[in-house]
Design a protein around this nucleic acid. Sequence first.
DNA 1: CGTCGAATTGATGTCATTCAACTACAGTGG
DNA 2: CCACTGTAGTTGAATGACATCAATTCGACG
Lengths: 206, 206
Amino acid sequence: MYLNCGANQLTMEESFEKYLSINTGIPENEIHVLTHQILKKDISKGTLLLREGEICSKIFFVEKGLLRIYTIDSNGKEHIIQFSPENWWFSDRGSLYFEEPSDYFVEAIEDSRVVFLEKELFDFGGPNNDLIRSFNDKLLNNHIRQLQKRINLLLSATAEQRYLNFVKIYPDIMLRVPQWMIASYLGITPEGLSRVRRELARHNRS
Amino acid sequence: MYLNCGANQLTMEESFEKYLSINTGIPENEIHVLTHQILKKDISKGTLLLREGEICSKIFFVEKGLLRIYTIDSNGKEHIIQFSPENWWFSDRGSLYFEEPSDYFVEAIEDSRVVFLEKELFDFGGPNNDLIRSFNDKLLNNHIRQLQKRINLLLSATAEQRYLNFVKIYPDIMLRVPQWMIASYLGITPEGLSRVRRELARHNRS
DNA sequence: CGTCGAATTGATGTCATTCAACTACAGTGG
DNA sequence: CCACTGTAGTTGAATGACATCAATTCGACG
């Protein structure tokens, strides 16, 4: 854990700053006002950033690496709610906004570099406040769109259809995570996914 | 369809105005600046407010009645994404924000009174702009929270557990919609739900 | 009373899970 | 370098949950 102020973290900061500048429309030379005191961490694979029951007090931005957000049910089974690769935001919006204990765990599944942001970032009151808020608005709207599509898939599609959809939308993630995590994301067992893949391969070969 | 300006619509407007005043913190005497030109409609049961393929250009607020938002899959089966009773907002955030064709249908399943809002409402630039935007922010965050919980349930819970959860969270809606719609919301067949209910009744009786 | 959609019920089928065995492979320590 | 270990992935057989299909029943409404 460190504050981003050393020379060797410069490239890291640039990455997040660039992202923010491009997406909010705030000129690069004004971005540092927002980001000069931002907390960044190198997170090693397997580290938990949030546990069920804790109150999530940050918004995270993944500069490098890959995180998963998941629940553990009463039988001890994990269910992956979301993956977060590079340039993705994530947070437990419910816990963050309403200050409730979170239902979720967050774990780094690769060595990662993560920016930790206070929720006030999106409402800091400066001259570029509107640009930041608009961008947050866009993030939230997009998130809702994704979640609704996922619900629709879970309601209407078979395991095979959900898998094909996943591969289509997240080809990169698909190559980076073990199969059992994909199964968990899709709501099926690892065995089930293995069979789905076998059938698909059999069909494509003939 | 009418603009809300007649005496007989006064109570209707008051309802929405009160809601907005209470939830945004904007004083009642300033609310009319926002709402004096708002479009309200009486929608009769069965009317579609949005069809798949259309671009959703409004945010809706349900003053009275009950709406459902649903998809129709390739087999012609309906899948209910959400119910919207009194004092609920709804919109296809994806279609609205990104100006894409919607995946969803919206139908009034009771005679309803609905407020039609331009998306600019939440960014009109007036003196209370911040209050309105903050409230919209809260709505979006809450929406995300609900959707994530639903996904978690769909991933981890049995039909029976999902049903019990639905009854617990939406006891009112449960009494107002036919059983097959609840089944559709839960992702099971009407027959399946019927059997779940029978088993629950059998258990509670003994 | 007759009609139509909603709900129930039974018989059967299908998809995905469970459990167990087995393979493949990476990491560890002797 | 090789056995030892643990995790991921695959496969088979049995099971279970829920769907499908068809036949009734129930209940609201003209």
